[in-house]
Design a binder for these strands. Structure first.
Length: 185
DNA sequence: GCCTGGATTGTCT
DNA sequence: GACAATCCAGGCA
């Protein structure tokens, strides 16, 4: 059985939604093809965080992050890689949860064709999961509650003891323990 | 198999 | 003009 979180679920603070997103399914339908993956790693970003895009205030690129919660924020990194974020917190708060990694569930064939990489590298990174699932700039700002991109709960529930650690790959605020991932079973 | 270094494009100051 | 929440290839153990 699968359920989908409501708007209120996304309206909580990023450090709260982050661990709750673990074990949820990210379902993306592009060109009539549906791909999904289990979220295994996330990171929380707050407006008072020097590493956050919203730290310096509103801009064209991060406008979605200041919008209502439950929306998808897709941004470009290094010009070629894109990363998917889930907007959280009350509208205008500028919070988001970065989806760092997913575990492929459905649409493996499509993902392999898109990635042309070994299975273990299909979606184990922010840029990779976007490419594997087919997330692009066209999905920037879409509503996760009413679009081809959705977050669903398959009944597994989030881990009781998610692994929490410092964020990596960024140059600022690396000491903030807002990286969450599913424990290795 | 693990680690290190370089590449690459869009956005903001 | 400089920076960025990364990825991939290559080299060494």
């Amino acid at each position: 059985m699968t359920t989908r979180p409501d708007r209120r679920w996304f309206e909580r603070d990023a450090p709260v939604v982050g661990p709750d997103l673990l074990n949820k399914l990210l379902v993306v339908t592009v060109d009539g093809i549906t791909c999904s993956g289990r979220i295994v790693e996330t990171e929380a970003y707050m407006p008072d965080d020097p590493a956050s895009h919203t730290f310096r205030g509103l801009s064209l690129r991060n406008a979605v992050m200041f919008g209502p919660p439950g929306h998808l924020y897709v941004y470009l990194s290094y010009g070629i890689h894109q990363c998917a974020n889930v907007v959280t917190g009350p509208a205008g708060s500028g919070q988001a949860v970065l989806i760092r990694a997913v575990e492929p569930v459905d649409g493996l064939d499509v993902m392999r064709a898109r990635r042309r990489r070994p299975d273990r590298e299909l979606a184990n990174g922010p840029g990779k999961l976007c490419q594997a699932l087919g997330i692009g700039a066209a999905h920037d700002g879409v509503d996760l509650l009413a679009s081809d991109v959705a977050i669903v709960d398959d009944g597994v529930g989030s881990p009781t003891h998610p692994v929490v650690g410092p964020r990596v790959g960024i140059t600022r605020a690396t000491a903030t323990p807002w990286r969450f991932r599913v424990p290795v079973e």
